[in-house]
Structure formats: structure tokens, C-alpha cells
């Protein structure tokens, strides 16, 4: 019964959006606008839930003295520090909160993704082997796009940028379009299944 109620709520919420889209009834437009504002607030609480969940799991690691618990302690202290600074002390652009964001979070997040440059280079060297026709097509497209998308490509041969753009806007586009159409069909079908209560994985156990 409890699960059924949740499915009904889900269906009604979706129905309001669909009726508004197809019939533009003023009452439904008002309902839809109100519901959008509610969902924004709900999504914000889901971020908070994520944050609290991380906090609790590391607190548990400290309490149970798991391997490397001292790292969790550092994490919890940093988390509490940021929350205190951001909510109770100074959220402004010149405060400690934004300073920590700019000089600690920002460079680390950028660097973590920059590490991928090394891994992708190493993967290019170790895994890119022209063993058959399909692998050769992959190889040729990758090399031509890489060379045609940088200024030096144009200096080496003026046609490289054109060839690179042609790959992107003709054969690659065709395949990407098939993927887009496939993904769109999948999303539409899943949406319909969810609203009709056939897809229930979101309810959990």
C-alpha cells in the first residue's frame, strides 16, 4: 500500500506536467510552476542528504578505528570547518570560506582531472593497436582529429583541419546521431514505464 501510494504520487506529478504541455490549461500551468519550485527545493535537500551521508560514514570509520581512520578525522574536521565558515561566519567573496574554495578545493579538483592526461597518453601508447579493420578506423580517426584540431596541424598540411572537421561533421555525426536517437527512445520509454508504475527500481527495497 505504501509503495502504491508513492507510485500514485509519481504518476500524478508526471501527469500534471504532461497535461500542461499538451493542453495549456491555466490551472495546470500554475500547478506546474509551483511544483517546479518545490522540486528545486527537494533537489537541494538531496544534496544535503549526500553531504550528511558522507559525514556519517566517516564518523563511523573514526569510531570503529578502521584502517586509515585518521584520514577520516581530517575529512570530518574540514567538512565541519567549511560548514561553520560558510553558514555561520562569512560566506562573502573575501572570507575564509571562499579562500579555502579558491586555494584548496579548486586546484585539487582541477589537478585530479589533469592526472587523466597522463593516463590517456599512456593508454594511447599501450592500447591503440591496429590489429584489424575496425581498430584501424578508430586509429585513423583519432590521429586525424588530434592533428587537425591544433594549429600545428594546419602548418604541417593545410588540409588537416578540413579532414578533421569532415570526420566530425559527416561519419562521426551519423554515428552520434544514431546514439542520440537510441538514447532518446530509451529515455522516453523509461519515462513512460516510470509514470505507469512498471519501472519501480527507484522505490528501493
Amino acid at each position: 500500500m505504501l509503495r502504491f501510494t508513492a507510485i500514485i504520487i509519481c504518476g500524478i506529478a508526471g501527469l500534471i506536467i504532461l497535461v500542461e504541455f499538451f493542453f495549456r490549461i491555466p490551472l495546470f500551468t500554475k500547478l506546474q510552476n509551483g511544483m517546479m519550485d518545490w522540486v528545486i527545493i527537494l533537489l537541494s535537500f538531496s544534496y544535503l542528504m549526500g553531504g550528511i551521508s558522507i559525514f556519517l560514514s566517516h564518523l563511523q570509520r573514526i569510531q570503529r578505528k578502521y584502517d586509515g581512520w585518521y584520514y577520516s578525522l581530517v575529512l570530518v574536521v574540514c567538512l565541519l570547518l567549511m560548514v561553520t565558515l560558510g553558514i555561520f561566519v562569512d560566506y562573502g567573496p573575501n572570507g575564509a570560506f571562499q579562500w579555502l574554495f579558491k586555494n584548496v578545493q579548486n586546484p585539487m579538483q582541477s589537478t585530479m582531472f589533469a592526472l587523466l592526461a597522463f593516463y590517456v597518453s599512456s593508454a594511447s601508447y599501450r592500447a591503440f593497436r591496429v590489429r584489424n579493420l575496425h581498430a584501424t578506423l578508430l586509429f585513423v580517426a583519432a590521429v586525424l582529429v588530434m592533428i587537425g584540431k591544433v594549429p600545428i596541424g594546419e602548418i604541417l598540411w593545410s588540409k588537416f583541419p578540413e579532414i578533421s572537421q569532415w570526420i566530425l561533421s559527416v561519419p562521426s555525426l551519423a554515428a552520434q546521431r544514431a546514439l542520440t536517437i537510441g538514447a532518446a527512445l530509451g529515455l522516453i520509454a523509461t519515462g513512460l514505464k516510470t509514470l505507469l508504475g512498471i519501472e519501480r527500481s527507484w522505490l528501493g527495497k
Partner: peptide, 10 residues
């Protein structure tokens, strides 16, 4: 761990 703590708090 500092990164995760700081960004979650943020």
C-alpha cells in the same frame, strides 16, 4: 581527504 571534506562542506 582534505579535498572531500572541504568540497562536501562547501
Amino acid at each position: 581527504h582534505i579535498f572531500i571534506g572541504i568540497s562536501t562542506g562547501y
